[in-house]
Amino acid sequence: MNKTCKTCGETKPLEAFYKKADCLHGRTTNCIDCHKVTRKAQYWADPERYRAYSSTWIRENPEKAKRMSRAAMLKYKYGLSLDEYEAMVEEQEGRCLICRTRADLVVDHCHERGHLRGLICQPCNVGLGSFRDDPVVMRRAAAFIELTQDGPAPLEWAEMEVGSS
């Protein structure tokens, strides 16, 4: 289904209009492109008014503002919607994929290829970064911890090979 924008006069698919329940077809009268241009012009006509309104709204709606900010960050950084993130948290039962503790979970992603690996807790995320996401270094660290449970490591340990698989 198509709709004609009241501003530019172009006929566009409904997806080119913001959703708005009280409008015809549940969409705004101006297309998204025209709406953005109009809002930007309104902002620059009186930016202080918009900043004041924004500050007041955030102060009066802290939880909603936090949720919206989180949603925007997830979409911008990872291409994830807040619903997708929350579904991942639920699927993982709120547990870190590495240590299995219940915690606030962060999105872990491969820095080289950019793909998402899953949700992990902040300490595990920092740990992966500290080991430069290198499985060989992580295995050596695990072997080191196991070896030194009862005392310091022998000096020759630094030269020993640790399994690579």
Rank of each mutant, 00 (worst) to 15 (best):
C34I: 00
G26A: 06
K40R: 15
H35K: 11
R70P: 03
C31W: 11
D33N: 06
S55N: 15
T56F: 15
A45L: 02
L97H: 06
L82A: 11
S55P: 05
K75F: 14
G26Q: 10
R39V: 00
S54D: 15
A71L: 12
W44Q: 12
L24S: 14
W44R: 07
Y76L: 09
S81N: 06
A71Q: 11
C34S: 04
H35M: 13
S55H: 13
T29K: 14
C34Y: 07
V37P: 03
A72I: 02
R27I: 09
G94L: 00
S55I: 08
T56L: 15
E60H: 11
M68E: 10
Y85H: 06
K75D: 14
S55F: 08
R59V: 00
G79A: 10
M73F: 11
H35Y: 15
Y76N: 13
T101R: 12
T101F: 05
D46V: 00
L24D: 15
C34R: 02
E63H: 08
C34E: 03
E84G: 01
E90W: 03
G94H: 04
E63V: 00
D33W: 04
K66A: 13
A45E: 08
S69H: 10
K64S: 10
A52D: 13
R100V: 03
K66G: 05
T101I: 07
R70S: 05
K40D: 08
L82N: 06
R95C: 02
T56Q: 15
Y76H: 11
E91S: 04
S54T: 12
L80F: 10
A45I: 01
A52Y: 02
G26V: 00
E60L: 14
D46P: 07
E60M: 13
T38E: 12
D46K: 07
E93L: 07
Q92S: 05
W44A: 01
G79C: 09
M88H: 04
R102I: 10
R27K: 15
E48R: 09
R100K: 11
Y43H: 11
C96I: 00
R67A: 10
C99I: 01
P62K: 08
M88V: 02
D33I: 00
E63F: 04
E84Q: 13
T56G: 14
T29R: 13
K66S: 10
R59N: 09
C34W: 05
Y85R: 05
I32W: 14
K75G: 11
Y43A: 01
Y43T: 00
E91Q: 04
E86Q: 12
T28R: 14
